[in-house]
Simulated assay, not measured.
Amino acid sequence: MTKPQHDSDVAFIEALAELLNKSGLAELSVKREYGEHDSLNVRVTKYAAVVAAPAAPAAPAPAASAAQAAPAAAAPAATDGDPAKHPGAVTSPMVGTVYLSAEPGADPFITIGATVKEGQTVLIVEAMKTMNHIPAPRAGTVKRILVEDGSPVEYGAPLLIIE
C-alpha cells in the first residue's frame, strides 16, 4: 500500500523552516494527522546533531577570543579530542543562548585561568526568556571557554572545561 501524496506537505515543511529561522528556535518537531493511518512526522533543526557529526573538532575554534589567546600552552593538551568527552567538561543542561556575564558590558563570570568554587555561577543559559544560572559542578581552574557570549547552544554541548 503506497502513501498518498499531499501537495501541501512541501509548503508546510518550508513554513516550518521559515518559522524556525524567524523565532530563533533551534528545533521544531511536528506531527500532522491526515487520517487514522496517514500522518506526517516532521523534525526541522537549525544545527546538525553533535552525535551525527562525531568528527567535528572544529566546533570549538570559533569560540577563540582575545581573552583565550593568552594561555596558549594549555590549549594543545585539551584539543586532542572531543571537548564534550573531557572529564572536566561542563555541558549545557538545555537548549538556549549562552551569556558569559550577568548583563551586557558587565565583567564575565569567569575567565581562563580563574579558580572557581563548586556551585559558583560560571555562565547563564537563556531559554524561553528565563535566565538559568549554570553552576560549576566542581571546584577547579577554568582551562578553556568553548562558547562565545550570545551564541546558541544545544543540550549537552560543551561550554567550558574546569580542571
Results as ranks from 00 to 15, higher is better:
residue 142 V to Q: 00
residue 27 E to F: 04
residue 91 T to R: 14
residue 7 D to S: 15
residue 11 A to G: 01
residue 137 P to M: 00
residue 76 P to K: 03
residue 139 A to E: 15
residue 22 K to Q: 15
residue 19 L to Y: 12
residue 141 T to C: 01
residue 158 P to Q: 09
residue 97 T to G: 01
residue 160 L to H: 05
residue 76 P to S: 06
residue 89 A to H: 10
residue 154 E to L: 11
residue 30 V to G: 01
residue 158 P to Y: 08
residue 133 H to A: 05
residue 152 P to G: 05
residue 127 A to W: 08
residue 120 Q to P: 10
residue 6 H to C: 02
residue 26 A to N: 08
residue 132 N to Q: 05
residue 66 A to N: 08
residue 117 K to V: 08
residue 26 A to T: 07
residue 31 K to I: 10
residue 53 A to Q: 13
residue 4 P to F: 10
residue 48 A to W: 02
residue 114 A to L: 11
residue 152 P to H: 09
residue 120 Q to L: 08
residue 19 L to C: 07
residue 63 A to E: 07
residue 22 K to D: 10
residue 129 K to I: 05
residue 88 G to I: 02
residue 156 G to C: 14
residue 108 P to Q: 06
residue 58 A to Y: 05
residue 13 I to H: 00
residue 73 A to H: 11
residue 33 E to M: 15
residue 5 Q to R: 12
residue 92 S to G: 07
residue 131 M to G: 03
residue 37 H to M: 14
residue 37 H to W: 14
residue 110 I to H: 03
residue 129 K to G: 02
residue 116 V to M: 01
residue 132 N to V: 04
residue 26 A to W: 04
residue 147 V to P: 08
residue 104 P to C: 07
residue 4 P to L: 13
residue 76 P to L: 02
residue 21 N to M: 13
residue 40 L to Q: 10
residue 22 K to S: 13
residue 141 T to K: 01
residue 140 G to H: 00
residue 66 A to Q: 13
residue 3 K to A: 15
residue 21 N to S: 15
residue 33 E to Y: 14
residue 89 A to T: 09
residue 115 T to R: 15
residue 6 H to S: 04
residue 11 A to S: 13
residue 31 K to R: 07
residue 62 P to L: 00
residue 42 V to R: 00
residue 123 L to R: 14
residue 16 L to F: 01
residue 63 A to D: 04
residue 60 P to C: 01
residue 11 A to V: 09
residue 26 A to G: 12
residue 74 A to R: 14
residue 22 K to Y: 03
residue 30 V to Y: 04
residue 150 G to Q: 13
residue 63 A to C: 04
residue 103 E to G: 10
